[in-house]
Design a protein around this nucleic acid. Structure first.
Lengths: 289, 289
DNA sequence: ATCACTTACGGGTGACGTAAAAATC
DNA sequence: GATTTTTACGTCACCCGTAAGTGAT
């Protein structure tokens, strides 16, 4: 059998054209590479190179060999990542979220429910979440719609509603306490978090003229909001999670548009149904359909 | 990267179940194999084995790894044979024949025409010849019919006609000098060569009741024929190649059935047309269409 | 006691780097 | 003279086998 390092040397030589150049990139000496090529020819018992005194190049057979070697190397890389990913998937549950609200709400609960496991949480675009679920990057994803794929299992897992958060002196707090529309507030300047997932699109569509002042650090955002007269956002989830003093001194006014309430769905592959059954039945009890 | 020998050790362990047994078949010591498995785990950084003090078995991840390793090893084997075969095909021309006549006639001519090359000649069933041409086992084949494949190039390369060879006292020599039919001779006992390729079928179909006495060694056959009163076969090709004294003292009577004359076609893949052009144009001149 | 695996230790193969030579540009 | 390849030589890594130890049947 031919050892892998010889195949690596061969493909590097094909890639870089000369032994010297290839040796540099392989971090070995040039004579070492020369010997590798000789050994390869010896083991295969095939002339892989056209040699002149000062020059070496691949023969037709060598070109074929380098080609096939490349494929084998790729198979090996794939094997390594496949085994690592598989092993990881046995010990960790990767959850992809489309918005920060459910991530903050669910991730501690999932963590405590699967105490032996590593739980990793991540936010991404919904399209990427679906692909990630299929490619087993995620074992579970939270979407703002119910996907239709045959091999997906999905159940509703709650809603999140958006509120306007303003100081009592703000016109909206004075005149429209029962509700505002996105149209009303379009053009207003908002303080808001940097990473809001699915809400991003809603802002862009419904309040295209608003200026948004971003703050990544949520604790810092809270301070800035409390010491400012600018408008901000809140949701029922963020209010519930952060306790009553979260936006003390501010008035919360619900947005009245239907888009201001998002319905979330928890989705996994049917093949993982057993592993995640604990969590799904918890959701089923928590949020009756 | 993971060296091949580690993958071989892993697959051997899966195959034989215990380290001791696998080590035997690998012709290495059992501790060496134990270390290989440890190294594999270390490099992959994945628990591949379930270990008790006295027992070792593959984990789920290990099973996956062994599976993928097996595929990689197979790819490598395929690479080695592919490169060797390709190299061989650059230096040798393998010709497959459906009958001994054209083989004896052509193979010396091909050999002298491609002096630098190794020429290998072989007889086989026509179906096998076609498959062998496609799989590049043969670069050229001689068939008794013109194949219709798109990527084949074929030209007529002569005919071969069967003769009855009998002593002058034989009834056929006395009464039917101008020609005999297979039907006439069905039931006759013949001396003949062991390996006659395409002629085999014709005998089986047209003279099913004849007894055939086989002789592999052709020189010996010639002697036996010349000292016997039994009927034998000859063809125009064998007569031409062996010279006038070949069947001295015997009468040659042509078979009159149409099946007694075979039309041969020389066939190659179109992709090899250039390499074989010399030979094909020789045939075109020799045997005008 | 035997079997199966791991750890410990010493040895030899071979892959590597450095140095030098030959050839080409 | 600079670049590229090959050969020569010494070194070191590492893979192996033997031997010894541990635990299970």
């Amino acid at each position: 059998m031919i050892e892998i390092y010889l195949l690596e040397h061969l493909t590097a030589f094909r890639q870089y054209g000369t032994l010297s150049e290839a040796a540099k990139h392989l971090h070995i000496s040039q004579p070492a590479l020369s010997r590798s090529m000789q050994k390869l020819e010896e083991v295969l018992d095939v002339k892989l190179f056209e040699r002149s005194k000062n020059r070496i190049g691949l023969s037709a057979a060598g070109l074929l060999a380098a080609d096939l070697a490349g494929r084998i190397l790729q198979s090996e890389e794939e094997m390594i990542t496949a085994v690592r990913n598989y092993d990881r998937s046995l010990h960790t549950i990767s959850v992809g979220y489309c918005a920060p609200g459910p991530m903050m709400a669910f991730s501690p609960q999932i963590t405590s429910r699967y105490s032996g496991m590593m739980i990793s949480s991540e936010m991404d675009e919904e399209e990427a979440l679906v692909h990630g679920l299929i490619s087993r990057k995620y074992q579970m994803i939270i979407l703002s719609y119910r996907p239709q794929q045959e091999n997906f299992l999905s159940i509703p897992c709650g809603t999140e509603s958006l509120f306007l958060s303003v100081i009592p002196a703000h016109p909206a707090a004075v005149y429209e306490k029962t509700g505002v529309s996105f149209h009303d507030m379009n053009g207003e300047t908002f303080l808001m978090a940097a990473d809001v997932g699915i809400w991003e699109k809603i802002k862009a569509e419904k309040m295209p003229d608003s200026r948004l002042i971003r703050q990544k650090d949520l604790d810092l955002l809270k301070e800035v909001v409390n010491s400012s007269s600018l408008a901000a956002f809140a949701t029922d989830i963020s209010l519930r999670l952060n306790g009553p003093d979260y936006r003390a001194g501010r008035i919360m006014i619900p947005f009245t548009d239907p888009e201001a309430t998002v319905h979330y769905y928890c989705v996994c592959l049917k093949e993982n149904e057993d592993r995640l059954n604990d969590w799904f039945s918890f959701l089923r009890n928590q949020i009756p359909q």
